[in-house]
Write a protein that binds this DNA or RNA. Structure first.
Lengths: 164, 164, 164, 164
DNA sequence: CATGAATGAGGTTTCATTCAT
DNA sequence: AATGAATGAAACCTCATTCAT
């Protein structure tokens, strides 16, 4: 695994927080990379589930905007999610990559539906929207970014995404 | 020092790249944190110098937009800059914090001038603009984000920043 | 227990191969050393049984030579036997030591009978014969030692053991 | 590296015996396998030097027999040498393999010269002689094998190697 | 003053052994 | 009585930092 992907917490600390011995962690996740992968995959899956749930919503525009806002707000509390999103969408075959691609597809569906409903300008595509989601999530993890500023940041983005 | 502060490169590698012995690095920067701090401070100072240079530009709107674009493009090649911007602007007293605050003030000046020139909507403030700069820089560092997508992402942001 | 006593296979693997749970292994052999001991004792006992069987053979010379050859051939396939023989014959009181001593005595009987029959020179004694058995067994376990070479090696030894 | 090849001593112990810190060992030998390799290569080289020295000896028969005896006696004190010889002579490209092959060639030269001098029977070849050297060395490492028995074991082998 | 070898603390991983079911 | 999850000691290895030259 690349060193850069190493999560801040040592496995020993993970074990202590979980209230188990360190070897127990390794029984379940034979490798540190496995542990990270599993954590990420679970988060991605949860976000995808939320996206799919909102796909059924009556009003596509607020559904998209609401999902975007939720993800960024989540990233503000759980720092790691922003970093995790960064690595999403590769062509690789790992568990985390698959989960990330699933999430990406679900977001794409939300986006298209909002565009068809005329809530989002029709000339933007998933890649840049995903990049904006990633970026604002990362920014939200900034320790000096309070809720109010975060919302104003998102308003700018949503204005940019609104039909001309 | 905490392990979290460890930058991707080991000090030994840094020394080798710099063409000096490892002990020499430690003579100049007694601590790895010191080294990182110095690197960051220099980058911040350079960006600030660029911002101040553009402050004199004839056309405030393009000056602001150009600076923003340059920083994000730079972050695409030098990954660390995005991460560095994340930590900028604290109240702390370190060398890096001071440099970051200097950069922030210079960006604030660029922004105000662009707003006065009517190129940027007048109801946004520095904190959210800075957050957008940080976020898009981070997103640009994503390995799967090519130049075209990056530009489309920025267009959305600039549209959001344009006067209504 | 000392790490040196660790046999190549982990206890977990042993349990899996045996088709039982790991805790069951420890119920029968409270310690890894106990397990190894039991395995060795069984091997030694089997070899002793074979030696005693050959003791009844009509022709003492071929009986001795045949047994020697069999053991070495066996060591070629089951690597551990060579290593096991190494530890045989101590004064200690363990199960394995007793089995090893039993084997040694049986080999001694085979040897004496072959000497009385005039098939083996009368001035060699058990210790050096046993050492030769141990050594050639270990050599046979060598991964680059094919059957032909093994047989030529044994011929040299048997020539050396032949009456002058 | 295979687990079987793992030397009994932990790197920490090696470091303590050498009177240095553990990281120092790893600076010189980046891997445990490297360390073992280096130790083996040195031993092989020393033995080869001794073999080449004896190649110049006036009397080829005693030279060969003497070398064989020396190696086995050495293995009696330095246990690891016997185990080391076991792995000698592969086709692999490592440092240790090359040293082992060099040793093997030197022994082959000693052997041929002794055969030409009529001191060793002419129908034995290097592989079985090498196997006998390996085996007797291993046997000599046995903790219950005293000098006298070792010498009687060697006499049997040398008798087997004598011209008919 | 610059260098590279030395250091020990800390990280990941394995394995014999114990406990709850 | 049998199972498999849990455990901690110990192994290998890395890296920021210090010391002798």
């Amino acid at each position: 695994m690349t060193r850069a992907a190493t999560a801040a917490a040592s496995t020993e600390e993970v074990a202590r927080l979980a209230g188990v011995g360190i070897a127990t962690v390794f029984r379940h996740f034979p490798t540190k990379a496995n542990l990270l992968t599993a954590v990420l995959a679970r988060r991605f899956d949860r976000l995808r589930a939320r996206a799919e749930e909102l796909f059924e919503a009556a009003d596509p525009g607020p559904a998209f905007v609401g999902f975007f806002t939720e993800v960024v707000a989540d990233a503000a509390t759980k720092i790691a999610i922003g970093e995790a999103l960064l690595d999403a969408g590769g062509d690789e075959e790992g568990e985390a990559e698959q989960a990330a691609n699933g999430l990406r597809r679900a977001i794409g569906a939300l986006l298209r539906r909002a565009q068809e409903a005329g809530a989002i300008r029709s000339d933007v595509e998933l890649p840049e929207v995903y990049a904006l989601l990633v970026g604002t999530s990362r920014a939200a993890a900034h320790k000096h970014l309070d809720d109010e500023v975060r919302n104003r940041m998102l308003e700018v983005v949503f204005d940019g995404l609104a039909p001309r």
